[in-house]
Design a protein around this nucleic acid. Structure first.
Lengths: 340, 340
DNA sequence: TTGAAAGCGGTACCAG
DNA sequence: CTGGTACCGCTTTCAA
């Protein structure tokens, strides 16, 4: 069955394309088209199984009804869950989402922004990577709606949605300390993004304020490239007799999971009395035999807000007022699965 | 900075749109355009920051360079990992992916197929839902490339990629039995999809062949709606004194995780000697204190093959030969995290 | 070597 | 109540 177009319907009925277009777009009433004609248009449209061509419509109207989502990695549960929420919310507005993974790579982010632009997306939701503020700035300058999620740039006046990373991280580490841990090792991504810095500062301050003398060797950096290897190396340092940490703070769930898995691969297993804590609430710890302090983020709210803001901007003709900066709450969770 | 078009470039140079288009599409050589002109076109294109409008191009060429991916739920790790692979592979061909979640809902699937069609996607990769074979059939009839993943319809001649569900399930249950379990409870989604049936048959046959007298009460069905509640109810039946299962087989990782989490919510925790087994290899069991038998599926291969096949069909002009039916290997994994 | 013109499928504007 | 016409930005003959 070949695709039919508006003019197929028009020809069949001996009317103009204009009329058919108006009827199909619900503008029949305001143009006072006869009931009879309206009915016949719909009949023929159904009969020919008419489906509007969104490319054509988009070309004409300048709206693709598509939003571009760029995250570090869509297979990371944190992002895929946000992605799902965004998908659902966007669809309420008749929008669809193109998902892209940047792998925290600046060059890739640049390319992705470009190709999404070529596809005329009506807005961007981005979890930005270090070094990409120039790209983001160009987007802003071109007046296309942008919302950043999870991270943002302090130097850039943009919409963003995030949690209070400093406080969250402070709370997590504080909880560890309350439980009696005194030598808290940590792994950070080697990046300039402020969310990482904030998470690090929260960790440091929680230690300091508890009177814990921070040992610089407790703080290790890992690279995005060769992540697994890098993690293994640093974790082994942290548990070595010289450093001998009794607990860990991980600024992302991914780091936490990969760290413990990395050790397990080399048959190094965590002791039940080792303190583990991290951002996010990775599924991997839902049946953990050892206690883990996690931080649940308001995934649904992030997705919700992101679409709210982006839609507001897309649908408002006039220039955007001041950017919306949203900081959401996060919650500490103490996990431990007790099997018998 | 306003978007510039081909004609902006053409005007600036005092040449025709045709020429600019040809140069920009690398067809300069075959049309013997002068080096000088080529150079200037590129210069001006860069200067004006030209970005081709893919909607316009798509409208003209009939190719949107987009593929539609429909899965049950993109936030399910099994699907998000496949999605990521598909994204990566597609991008090698200059294609992008619109992700959609069907929630295993027939009506929603129908709608999604429609809107993706309106967006002129060049191909579909679908993990189909029960009751949607009519839709799939219509897609096939309209000669648009389709690849099914994870599941398929026996009555439909389509491309598909899946694993051998019967054998996989048989192997899993067999492993449980070898470990001495004798009363194996199970939870199945209440669906007509063959993959579920195959998984059920593998389970049944493994029991039978081991001389285990199957108790019909061991086999419970859960609904997609009210999944969590439904699971809780059935799990409680399975562990009740009357039925008293000593182990479980779950045909998906999601079911396994939700089952144990559901019980834990009501403070019912699994015994270390309870046998747990499931399809997929959910992260939730990576630090499980109790032993779990899981089944790793070849995620990357599934994504790879899906794109291979879809691209082959998209790029070949002529009618498709016979559908490609791919069955991939899966692997049993015995997990248990030993903490001290 | 290059250009003119048509057309992909819609929508918008202006007439009648 | 309805139609004509231009045009969104690009590709594709065909002609020069």
């Amino acid at each position: 069955m070949k695709r039919s177009s508006i003019s197929d319907i028009a020809k069949r009925l001996g009317v103009s394309n204009t009329l058919v277009s108006m009827v199909l777009n619900g503008k029949a009433k305001e143009n006072r088209i006869s009931e009879e004609t309206i009915k016949r248009v719909f009949e023929v449209a159904k009969e020919l199984n008419y489906q509007p061509n969104q490319l054509a419509r988009g070309l004409r109207t300048g709206k693709s009804k598509t939003i571009g989502l760029i995250v570090a990695d869509i297979s990371n549960p944190f992002f895929s869950r946000i992605g799902r929420k965004i998908e659902d919310e966007a669809s309420k507005y008749g929008y669809h989402v193109i998902f892209c993974s940047s792998d925290e790579n600046t060059q890739k982010t640049k390319t992705l922004i470009n190709v999404l632009n070529e596809r005329q997306v009506d807005g961007f939701i981005i979890s930005p990577t270090a070094g990409s503020q120039q790209q983001i700035k160009e987007l802003l300058d071109s007046d296309i709606p942008v919302v950043l999620i999870d991270r943002y740039f302090t130097e850039l006046e943009t919409n963003y949605i995030a949690i209070d990373n400093y406080t969250s991280s402070y709370k997590i580490v504080k909880s560890l300390i309350v439980q009696g841990y005194k030598r808290i090792g940590s792994l950070f991504f080697n990046t300039d993004m402020v969310h990482m810095k904030h998470r690090m500062n929260g960790y440091k301050d929680a230690c300091k304020e508890a009177g814990i003398q921070l040992d610089e060797r407790w703080i290790r950096n890992v690279d995005f490239e060769n992540l697994e290897e890098s993690i293994k190396k640093e974790m082994k340092a942290l548990i070595s007799p010289e450093i001998d940490c009794d607990s860990f703070f991980f600024p992302t769930g991914e780091l936490a999971v990969k760290s413990l898995e990395g050790l397990a691969e080399d048959d190094i297993h965590i002791f039940n009395h080792t303190g583990i804590s991290c951002f996010d609430d990775p599924e991997a710890f839902h049946f953990s035999p050892f206690p883990v302090i996690t931080l649940t983020q308001p995934i649904n709210e992030i997705g919700n807000k992101a679409i709210d803001i982006i839609m507001e901007e897309i649908e408002s003709e006039n220039e955007v007022d001041s950017p919306r900066k949203v900081i959401l709450d996060s919650h500490i969770l103490e996990r431990r699965y007790e099997s018998h």
